[in-house]
Computed example of a mutant assay.
Amino acid sequence: MALHFVTDEAASAQPGDTVTLTGAEAHHAAAVRRVRVDEAVTLGDGHGAWLSGLVTAATPKQVDVRVTGREEHPAPSPRFVLVQALAKGDRDELAVQAATELGVDAIVPWQAARSVSRWDAKADKGLARWRTIVREAAKQAHRAWIPDVEGVARTADLVRRAGTDLVLVLEPSASDRLTAVAVEASDDRDVVLVVGPEGGIASDELDALVAGGARLVRLGDTVLRTSTAGAAAISVLSAAHGRW
């Protein structure tokens, strides 16, 4: 499979044009991935543009690609949105990486009541970190669309969202299975998966979400870590909606 790179130039480039990678992207292409002249690669802008091309020059400071083909990939509908509770260590980052590789369309960091990690004073740094993880994971997975990483949400924000989107809260004690409700989203509403922190979602948060219109669902008879629950749920949705 051809190597894939992301650049804003891909948004307007047409067959016959030359797209130039510079900076970190060029260094990654030439020094890390060892791309060579005449090698076939793909390029994207992260917003649906998909180019095929051939490398015409490759140095750690500049890689030139002659565009040979262009496609436009429409944005997925409905969108799959992962609301991932902040977690200690790198567990939330692992969740974000896996969900991106498996097809999530947007990610929302959630400052849940039981989140050990707190972003109160470092939200900008945390968001930048997650966006970097998402960008690299999307490139690795050869995705035409790079998922959005939205601002940090509080529980009240999720409750409001439950009034307009299909919000499914992953809760091991729920009576409904995700597989039973995954195909119910037949319109263009976002399908929002809410994953709690290590200690689970607090009872008052669950009550507020349900009162706002969210549904509690479980993945199966076992309890998954916060780092794997979202990825598993995205897989279920992808199969149910025909993406896989």
Rank of each mutant, 00 (worst) to 15 (best):
D207L: 09
V191W: 00
R36K: 12
S52F: 13
V236D: 09
A95L: 01
A182H: 04
G163P: 01
W130Q: 13
L94T: 03
V236N: 12
A233E: 06
G126L: 08
A24E: 13
A31H: 14
E198W: 02
H142C: 12
G23M: 02
E72T: 14
R70D: 02
W110M: 01
V35R: 14
L219C: 03
V195L: 02
A85S: 15
T7C: 03
E101D: 14
V83A: 13
T18W: 07
G199W: 00
A185R: 15
W244E: 09
E198Q: 08
D45V: 02
V32A: 12
G46P: 00
A232D: 06
T155F: 08
V83E: 03
A24P: 10
A106C: 15
L170G: 09
G48L: 12
G151V: 08
V167E: 00
H241L: 15
G163W: 00
L193M: 05
T132R: 15
Q111D: 03
V152Y: 04
W244T: 09
T20C: 05
T20H: 08
R91V: 00
A123Y: 05
L3Q: 15
D90V: 06
R189M: 06
A58N: 09
R154L: 12
L216D: 06
V181T: 07
V167M: 02
S115Y: 01
V65H: 10
E39R: 03
S77M: 04
W130H: 07
S227V: 01
V149N: 13
T22C: 13
K122R: 15
P172M: 10
A10R: 12
D204C: 01
R189C: 08
R131G: 01
A233L: 07
T228E: 14
T226Q: 13
A153V: 00
R177C: 05
A57Y: 01
R36T: 06
W50D: 09
V149M: 14
G53N: 04
E171M: 02
P15D: 05
L178D: 03
D45K: 04
S173I: 02
V194D: 12
P172N: 06
K139R: 15
D188A: 14
D124C: 10
R91P: 05
G89P: 12
G89T: 11
H142K: 14
R225Q: 07
I201Y: 01
G89Y: 12
R129L: 04
K61Y: 08
W130S: 06
R36C: 06
A40G: 03
A153W: 15
T20K: 05
S238H: 13
M1D: 09
L209R: 04
L21Q: 10
A75C: 07
E198I: 00
E101T: 11
E171W: 10
P147G: 12
A239V: 11
A13E: 10
A137D: 00
R160W: 08
S227W: 11
P147D: 13
S186A: 13
Q97M: 13
R177T: 06
E71G: 01
L193S: 04
G199R: 00
G230Q: 02
S115G: 03
T68H: 13
L127N: 11
H241N: 11
D90K: 12
E150I: 07
A113M: 11
F5M: 06
T222Y: 14
D92P: 10
A144R: 12
E150L: 14
T164H: 15
G48F: 13
A112N: 02
Q14P: 04
